[in-house]
C-alpha cells in the first residue's frame, strides 16, 4: 500500500468537501420537530403486531412473502386440478313425487297401477323373449351342463 496509487492524501482532502454540505437553515429544528410529532402521532402509538413480532414483516422480507404467495397459488391450482380430474359421475336427477309412482300404493286408483303392471308385462312378452326359462331344480336349464343348483343358505338336508 505504499505505492503512489495508494497515496490517498489528495482524495482525503477532496472528501473534506462533503463535510461542508449543509441542509437549509433551521433544518435541524424541523427534523427534530418532525420526528417529535410523528412519535406522538399514529406512528409512535402503533404497536407491533404479533405477525411483526414473529419476524414476518413484509417490509423486510418481500422475497419470502412473494415465494409464500406463489406457493399458495400453486397449492390452490393443484387442488383445483385434482378436483377436476377426479370429478364423480353425474348424479341422477333428483326424484320428485310427480316422476315416480308406486304401483302397489293402495291409495292409487286400481286402473292406474294395473296399467303400469300390464305395460311392464307387455314390454317383454314371454313368447318373444330370448331369456332362458328358469326351473326350480336347475336340471332343465339349457346353459347349465354341470347341473348346478341354487339352494337356500339355511337348507339342512335330512340324513
Amino acid at each position: 500500500m505504499g505505492s503512489s496509487s495508494d497515496d490517498f492524501t489528495a482524495l482525503r482532502a477532496l472528501l473534506k468537501v462533503k463535510r461542508y454540505e449543509q441542509p437549509p437553515p433551521r433544518y435541524w429544528d424541523d427534523l427534530a420537530d418532525g420526528i417529535h410529532s410523528r412519535l406522538r402521532g399514529p406512528d409512535g402509538l402503533r404497536r407491533k403486531s404479533l405477525f411483526s413480532l414473529l419476524g414476518f414483516d413484509f417490509a423486510f422480507r418481500p422475497a419470502l412473502f412473494y415465494g409464500l404467495g406463489v406457493a399458495c397459488c400453486c397449492v390452490a391450482l393443484y387442488a383445483g386440478m385434482a378436483m377436476l380430474v377426479r370429478q364423480p359421475a353425474p348424479a341422477a336427477p333428483p326424484m320428485t313425487a310427480s316422476s315416480t309412482v308406486n304401483a302397489f300404493d293402495p291409495a292409487l286408483p286400481a286402473e292406474s297401477s294395473a296399467h303400469l303392471l300390464i305395460s311392464d308385462a307387455e314390454a317383454t312378452p314371454v313368447s318373444s323373449s330370448t331369456n332362458p326359462l328358469m326351473s326350480t331344480d336347475g336340471s332343465s336349464l339349457p346353459m347349465n351342463p354341470y347341473k348346478v343348483r341354487a339352494v337356500p343358505v339355511n337348507y339342512q338336508p335330512k340324513p
Binding site: A10, A13, L14, K16, V17, Y20, E21, Q22, P23, P24
Partner: peptide, 18 residues
Amino acid sequence: SLNDLDFNAEHDPDLVAF
C-alpha cells in the same frame, strides 16, 4: 439533490490549498 456547501468550506485551509 445536494445540500449547499457551508460558507466555512471556503475558509478550510486544506480545501483552499487543494
